[in-house]
Amino acid sequence: MREKIIYIFAAAAAVLLVRNLYVILLVLPDEAQQGPIYRIMFFHIPSAITCFIGFLAAGISSAIYLATKNPRNDAIAVASTEVSLAFATVVLATGSIWARIIWGIWWTWDARLTSMLVCWLLYASYLMLRRAIDEPTQRAKFSAVLSIFAFSDVIIVWKSIEWWRTQHPGPVLSIRTGGGQMNPAMEAAIYWNLLALILFGLVLVLVRLRQEEMRREIDGMRQMAHAI
C-alpha cells in the first residue's frame, strides 16, 4: 500500500515538474527588469515554503514523540528534517546564484539570507546530535527536544533579524501583498511548482521513513544477536 502511494506521488510530482518546467522556460516571457534569471524564483520561493512546512512537521512530530514515545514519530521527525534541510540548501544556493547576477555578489548579510543560514545551522546541528547518540530511545528523545527548541528559535530569529536589516526583495505573492505585485501567470507558476515540490518532498520523506524503519529493525536484530 505504502509502496503504491510513493509511486503515485512520485509520478504526479514528475508530471507536474515537467509541465512546470515547460511553462517556466518556454511559455512565460522574460521579466522586464531582471531578464531570464528571474526564473530562479520559481524554485527559490517554493523550496523555501516547502522547507518550512517540513521543519514545522518535524517540530510537531517531535512534540508528539515526547508525548507518546512512539518511535514512528521520531522517524517522521528525522525524515522531514533531512528532506527540509536539502530544500533549505536549495534555497540558499538558488538565492546565491540570483544574487550574483542581480546584486553582483554571492552573499550579503541581509535579514532573510542570514535567518535562512541560521535555520540551516540549527537543523544541521540536529543531525549532528543524532549521530552523537547511539542508544535509539535516548537519541529520539534528545533530538525531539532539540527540534522543539530549534523551531521556536527559527521564529525568533526571523523576527529579530527582520528588525536588524532587510535588503531582500519584499513579499511578492498576493496572499502577502494583497495583489498587484506580479503577473498572475507568473504567480500561478509559483503555486504550481510549490505543489510539485511539496509532492516531491513528500515522496522523499516517505522513502526516508521506510529506510529509517528498516534501519531500526536491523539495529534491533543486531542487538538481539549481541545479547545471545
Binding site: P136, T137, R216, D219, M221, Q223
Partner: peptide, 9 residues
C-alpha cells in the same frame, strides 16, 4: 508486565 526497550531491543 514491565517491559523496557532500547530501540527495538
Amino acid at each position: 508486565g514491565v517491559w523496557k526497550f532500547y530501540g527495538d531491543f
